[in-house]
Design a protein around this nucleic acid. Structure first.
Lengths: 215, 215, 215, 215
DNA sequence: GATGAATGAGTGTTCATTCAT
DNA sequence: CATGAATGAACACTCATTCAT
């Protein structure tokens, strides 16, 4: 849930500047704030969550909170950054020894991604809902991260097409569709509530996504 | 853009009650409010749109506005209801003479749906973002309408499977996936900005969605 | 205490814009706010006077107050404008039939000015103290009004010099000195507290100011 | 820039008490604080200068700052005291061998005073603006210092009247007027901006002030 | 039915001051 | 003695809602 800066030191959010001098403390509190705020945001949305709520949840006094951020919007950035860092780590950590079979690679990517999505369901939902409130800089960053994931997928697909194991298709577009289908159950999971278990849903989506790739 | 109640009378909203007696007037104003508010909501989001904004946009005095609704939330309901009514009409109006070929039926449904989505892009985006703010009753209604559409799709698919023109699959699940893939370009339009035209995107989605249905 | 606009209609403050439509009401409330706020500002200074204080003093609810102004600073402008309008009227109203004798004209100007200053002592003191907080536009206006008064004085003095009844001197500079001497007892009246009555102070200043004009 | 107490020990402030034992250190830090705070106060005013600003400017940690003062107001006192001490020194240091000619003595006093005022222009302006914020005790002390200077002037004038070189007048009143005319250019410097150089202004004021003393 | 002024609780944010180390 | 993080009351300002006409 942290960036690794050039020097190898852990950094969370280069954009949110704090008045506090001790960088270790800043990182720690930024993480605390992001964690607690994320919970509140998920439950009540950004606008309905007050700074007082966040103060209470973090156990930090109002003024102290503002020692670590300079506006409420910063907390939004903190939450997004923390998620992206975490998601990156999640995908990196579970990366299997790169298979030579594109079909296997694709399945592996989807499976990891679906697990991640299911774990962070509410957070992702929140992010999709309120990303427009992000300051442009963070928005751009978020979009770049998403694009990077899509590019990874695109490469896998392109390789599959080249090797003749996938049918011919627009690889970037297909990658985008897959990426979005991954998120699908987050946005509309309720459709399946009661009908299928989480396990089943994951399996169904995986199968459905892979279907167009059978020759 | 109106419901037909059981009695055949036009109703725009069963949930939003107004102090005004004249039902024709109520309907007219509710529509006016929904239309103007939708525009504002799309642009600035629900929370950032003030009652004063809506008063100004509709040309109705604050007090008069509150003669037709009782809380701001009501306007959200009005907007959602108006959309659903409109979408229903849209799909109904363009419904072709039911083809006997499930493949054609499916393609036709998707095409109409994609057009609808592209026309109302911003509104749909807004609704996905702020639906959680809806009072439960409206939320349930919105979900029911979505489910109805999915059921229509499900039937087409089931027929195709039965006739052996579609491969075997879970028809409800497939219908759900299709339905949300339709919405895909709304949520992630920016991914394609500059890469493809709207036409191309529609064609690509259509093709991609239909791919799993080739035997 | 009001401006006369081009049309002859009374206007108070063209700079402070309000959300209220009825201009009569706006004028009335602006005046009320200026009057009550001036009192508070004089007593506690601008910064120590809170919007709640002003709300309480005017009997207007916080929100209503903000219907007539858009920021606290506006109230400062209101106070300054009201004073300047009043001072203008004061000087105009008591303007005697322009005497032909510059000496008499000068004495009359000084006397009126001193009376005005003594009446509005605390207000003027406040204004000299906090004028730097004014938005530039108002500041410029205030300076222009002051300059206009100095110019009037300058003209009287120049006439006197031309007629040979005043000794040779820089008329603009002398006018400035006189103007400031008028205000003097506002800023440092306490020096005389207990020593002289207000009457006596006025007479002493008048005499002192006029002294350099004896040949 | 320090007082000499009765015992001959240097004291910078009798009113501002510090928690620190070492009196040398206290004096040093009080002076540092007064110097840095004065700069900030002149630029931004008392209220807009935060304790953080002062901490930063002095290089003292917040808590350490509060070891030497007990409230923000104390810093105001420190600034005023430092100024008065400095002004006293300024006048004392440049005091010429007391001339026997009251006219010369008067001119000398005014000249020194005008130089002082021009040097400390911004500081004096600040003090006039914010003196009301001083605790009563300091206010009284400041007034006493002013009065002392006025008394000095009064004596010169009285001597001149007695010797028949000045026309008859109320010597205390005249002394007061002179004293405040000195300050004039501080308060209304902008009136002359571009019209006269600083040199010219000083000469004009000097001449103007002395005018009533010609027989 | 319509108008628009009035209400006041609630929001984000600041900042003098304290306190643990 | 020094450091700087922590405290929380107070502030300016907003806005959904009501009410008098």
């Amino acid at each position: 849930m942290v960036n690794r800066g050039k020097s190898g030191k852990e950094i969370i959010s280069e954009t949110v500047s704090s008045r506090i001098k001790n960088p270790k403390l800043v990182r720690k509190k930024h993480l605390l704030i992001a964690r607690k705020a994320a919970k509140l945001f998920k439950e009540k949305g950004y606008h309905r969550t007050t700074m007082r709520d966040i103060s209470r949840a973090t156990g930090m006094a109002m003024g102290n909170l503002y020692d670590y951020i300079s506006k409420k919007e910063d907390i939004l950035s903190l939450v997004f950054d923390a998620y992206h860092d975490y998601a990156q780590e999640y995908m990196d950590a579970k990366e299997p020894p790169a298979s030579e079979d594109p079909r296997e690679e694709l399945r592996s990517f989807i499976r990891r991604s679906l697990n991640n999505v299911q774990d962070l369901r509410d957070l992702i939902l929140f992010m999709y809902r309120e990303s427009r409130l992000l300051p442009k800089e963070n928005m751009d960053r978020a979009m770049a991260k998403e694009l990077a994931q899509i590019r990874t997928l695109e490469n896998i697909i392109r390789k599959g097409i080249d090797q003749g194991v996938f049918p011919d298709m627009d690889p970037f577009f297909a990658a985008s569709m897959i990426f979005y289908q991954n998120i699908f159950l987050t946005l509309r999971g309720w459709t399946f509530a009661g009908k299928y278990t989480d396990e089943e849903v994951r399996a169904l989506i995986e199968e459905y996504i892979l279907r167009p790739f059978h020759i």
